[in-house]
Design a protein around this nucleic acid. Structure first.
Lengths: 218, 218
DNA sequence: TTAAAAAGACTGACCAGTCAGTTTTTATAT
DNA sequence: ATATAAAAACTGACTGGTCAGTCTTTTTAA
């Protein structure tokens, strides 16, 4: 038996996925979850609270953080595998609903301070991990010292945010090609010549190593 | 005297900026616009039509396109000035409202095919211009031929989409630093050695040429 | 004089949240 | 074990307020 709280959130997610938070009624959630109208308010004080819980970005980013923590080896490989992680995430159609709702959360963050907080918190955690990688890379001499870690972390996160939107909008994003370009950008612009040599890919700025998973573009 | 149609849209923008489309009532729009409840429905058949008109991304991107069309000189300079354009746009607090509403439109595009169409149309127009620049640059030998123009256009647009969100969320984005990083990425990774020489910036991969406008970060 | 434009009071549908009552679970006593 | 009491969890019909959209009346323009 599933906990009622998460049954409600699952149902809310399923409903919001299609029509958005605001076109989803508590009646919809009741129907979808099997929980009664009254019970809804045993777990959440208001519908807004359900939205806040749904939009909480912290959980979404936890997966990335955890995976990154595992890969705490070579910082440069860590950065490159981050791109793989996100690339794989873009391909994972099973998480499409969560991503749709996540984007709605990004818009809701404009009006709800609570949602804003959770979005910023999720963002910051991921960025902190990226910054740590970059700075370690600079310490080991693999990443050029003049690179602004803070700015680069924002740019990387921003790029993935935008790509997620494009994918979810149904655009025919060629993930493999995008991954190749991003890797190319990082390698050519951020790595020191020594680090490039170590990767053994000096001559080809756009190595063909990103495609890995089977594709099924619409 | 202003046309009633745009008075309505202006008012709707002003109301939606704060609380979002869905927490804005027709009564709010009536109050803000000075147009009567009945007159609203002379210009828009439904409230949804007002939202669709507000969220129309095509207008937003027109400014960029026009500015780019002007700068139809050297493709590489065009690309770099595109970054300036967006950077300046990020700084322009007067367009903050429109940007807030634009982000809401990105979320609405998930449920409304009409909004999806207009968002994709705006995206495609900008991307087409970028792709044209890149391909011209490849033709003139300034941009490496192995660069995937389509993918790069998506990445550039995605980056700006993400940065716009971060700014509007109130994050302390250092635009100057971000501009420097993006320029650095483009120069180091995309340009041919000859083009780099022509720019006269071979030794410094991160030239300090982005800061231009007076800053006022929160 | 007439047609079009605008006004604004009105309404019916809808929906978040409530509450009085019911069932289930837990605790205690026999 | 079984009975009983008390508490907790749950139910679903109900409601009061809200709001998109309408409709009759009034104003303006031709």
């Amino acid at each position: 038996m599933k906990a009622a709280g998460s049954k409600i959130l699952d149902a809310a997610l399923k409903c919001s996925r299609g029509d958005g938070f605001h076109n989803t009624t508590t009646a919809d959630i009741v129907r979808e979850s099997g929980v009664s109208q009254g019970a809804l308010y045993l777990y959440f004080a208001t519908k807004e609270d359900i939205i806040v819980a749904l939009a909480d970005d912290r959980h979404h980013s936890e997966a990335i953080i955890n995976a990154l923590a595992q890969a705490e080896q070579d910082p440069v490989r860590g950065l490159l595998s981050l791109i793989d992680l996100y690339g794989a995430g873009l391909a994972d159609t099973t998480r499409l609903d969560a991503r749709r709702v996540g984007i709605q959360g990004w818009a809701e963050a404009l009006r709800s301070p609570r949602i804003n907080d959770s979005v910023i918190a999720g963002l910051s955690t991921v960025r902190a991990a990226i910054i740590r990688l970059i700075e370690r890379g600079q310490h080991t001499g693999q990443i050029r010292p003049e690179v602004d870690a803070e700015a680069l972390s924002r740019i990387l996160v921003a790029t993935f945010q935008g790509l997620v939107m494009q994918v979810v909008w149904g655009e025919p994003v060629d993930r493999a090609a995008c991954g190749r370009v991003i890797r190319g950008l990082i390698r050519a612009a951020l790595l020191t010549p020594e680090a490039l040599d170590a990767l053994g890919s000096r001559p080809a700025p756009f190595p063909d190593r990103f495609e890995s998973r089977k594709e099924s573009l619409p």
